[in-house]
Write a protein that binds this DNA or RNA. Sequence first.
DNA 1: GATTGTTCTTTTATGCAACAATATACAATC
DNA 2: GATTGTATATTGTTGCATAAAAGAACAATC
Lengths: 303, 303
Amino acid sequence: MTASDSSRLRAAKNGGSERAEHLAGLIMALARREGMKAGDRLIEQRLADALDLSRAPIRLGLKALEAAGLARGEPHRGFVLAKNPSSGAAQPALAAVGRSEQVYATIAGDVLASRLPADVTEAELMRRYDLSRAELQRLLDRIAAEGWIARLPGYGWRFGETVSSPEAQAKAMAFRAVIEPAAIAQPDFMLSQEVIARLRERQLRVLEGELEKMTIGEIYHSGCEFHEEIIRGAGNPFFVEALKRVNSIRRLFAYRSFADRDGMRRHVREHLRLLDLLEARRYAEAAELMAKHLQRPLVAGLS
Amino acid sequence: MTASDSSRLRAAKNGGSERAEHLAGLIMALARREGMKAGDRLIEQRLADALDLSRAPIRLGLKALEAAGLARGEPHRGFVLAKNPSSGAAQPALAAVGRSEQVYATIAGDVLASRLPADVTEAELMRRYDLSRAELQRLLDRIAAEGWIARLPGYGWRFGETVSSPEAQAKAMAFRAVIEPAAIAQPDFMLSQEVIARLRERQLRVLEGELEKMTIGEIYHSGCEFHEEIIRGAGNPFFVEALKRVNSIRRLFAYRSFADRDGMRRHVREHLRLLDLLEARRYAEAAELMAKHLQRPLVAGLS
DNA sequence: GATTGTTCTTTTATGCAACAATATACAATC
DNA sequence: GATTGTATATTGTTGCATAAAAGAACAATC
C-alpha cells in the first residue's frame, strides 16, 4: 500500500471534516483566551478578524461546534456559546487530534530519542511515516519554521543540533535568562495597563482552580503566552521572535515532562509578583526577578 | 504571456546552466574562505563534503569554473585553481546573478519601501513578479526561513513587522548588543586557538588590502561570519541561531547602505582587539568591548 | 592509496488539470 | 445598522506524468 492509497482511505473514513474540527478548536481556544461565557454571541466577522480568516471557514468551525454541542445556532441569529469554554482536557468532543499532528509528535519523539539520523531524505520520511509528498512537505515547512530542521543544498534535510543535543533544555533556559531580563531593562520598555490587567486576570484564573483542569500542553502554552506578552513590551520584534522560536522548540521537551501542580502554583505566584513590579514601573527590579524566575532549577523545565 | 511561458523562454535562452554557475560561485567562495591560492588542487570529494553535496554537482561547478577561466582541468588529474580567488567584484565572470536572486532583491526593496501591502496572496506575487508557482514557492520558503514573511491561516502571506518598521535597523543592533556580550559572558564560553587564529588571519587579510576589492555584500557577509563564529563559542545553539536570524534580516538593509572604508578599517581593528582579549581568556573585558563595539553609532549599520 | 571518470539508481522538481478551500460582494433578516 | 445567508470569484492543493538533479558504486588512472 502506498502513501497516497492510505491517504485516500483516511480521507474517506472520517465523515466530519477534520479541517472543520480544527477550526472549531481555534474558535474555542479564542473564546477561552477572551474569557467568554456560556450565552455569549459568536459573531462571525469578529472571529474571522481575530483568527485572520474570512467568514467562510469560520462558519464551518461554528457548524462543527454545534455538532459537538458546544454552540447553539438559530437561523438568521447566528451562534451562541452553549458552555463555558473550559480546557481541552475537560472538553473531549474536539480532542480528536489530526493525523498530521500525530505524525508531528512521532517525528519529534524520534528525533529527541535519536531514532532518526541527522540527515534524512524526503522519500525516506514518506516511507517511514506513510505520508504523501504534500503532507510531508507541509510538515517539513512547519518544522523548518520552528527551526529544528533545515534543507541541505542537495537532496534531503538535516535536523538541527538545537534539538538533538541532550542539554538543549538547559541551553534554552540559559538563552531565555539572557534575553527576557534584558528586554525588560531596555530603555523604552513599556507595558500598558490593559495588557497588565489582562495578564493578571489570566494568571489569577489559572491559580484559582483552572490549573487542575488543564493539560500539560495548555499549561505550557499559557506560560509561553505570558512571557511573550511581557517581552513584547520592549517594542523590539527581534526579542519577541527569538523567544517564540525558543519556545516552539522547548515545547518538544515540555510535552514529555510531567506536571508538578505545586511547583506550578509557586510559579504563577511569581508571575503575579512580576506584574506588580511592572505595573509600578520598577523595571530594574522586574528584570532581576525575571532573571531569578528563569534561573531557578525548574520543575521539569516548565515555565 | 503567462509566467510559465516566460520561464521557458528564459530557460531556453541562457546556454550555460544557471545552476552550474551558482555551484561554481559556491566553490570559489569556499576557496576564498579557506585561503586557497592559484595552483591549489580542487579535490572533488573534499569540496563535496565541505558543501554538503555529492560529487555530481561539484563536477558541474568545476566545469563551469573552467569555462569561466578560473580553473584548469586535465583528464584524470582533476582541476586546479587558475587564479587566486579574489572577491566577486574583481571576478565578474561568475557575477551573473540568477534571476531568482534578482527577484528576491526586488521584493526586499519593495517591502522596505512599503510598496507592497503587508498581506499578499501568492497569485498576486506571481503576477507582479512574473514567476511560476514553483519559483515563487522556493522564494517564499527562503524568505520565511529568514523570518520576514509568514503564512496566514487562510490564503496568503503576511510580511513581518520586523522588516517593515523603519527603526528595524536600530532594533536589530539593540538585540545584538544584548546577546553577543552575554554569549561571551556565559560561564562555559570557549574559543579554540585554531578558530581564533583563523578569524585573526581573515581579519588581517581584509585589513591589508582585500577590503578595497570587496563588494558591500561581501564586506557584510564577512562581518557576519566573524560575529557568528564568536557567538558560537558559548556552546549554545540558541545564541547562534538568534544571531543568524537577525543578520539575515539586517542584510536587507545593509545592501542599501554605502561602504565607508575608513569606518570599516576602524571596525576591523576592533575585531582584532576583541580576538586578543578572547585569546587571553579575559572574557569579562571581551564582553564589554563587544557591547561597545555594537553600541557605537555605526557606519550605515555595517558591522 | 587516493582521486577521477563513468554508469546506474534514487530522489526531487516542474507543469498541469481537476478539485477543494477561502475570500468577497451583495441580498436577506433581524 | 449590524449580522447572517448565499452566490460567485479567487486562491491554493493534490496527484500524476515527465524531466532534471543528486547520490552511490565501481572501474580506470595517476
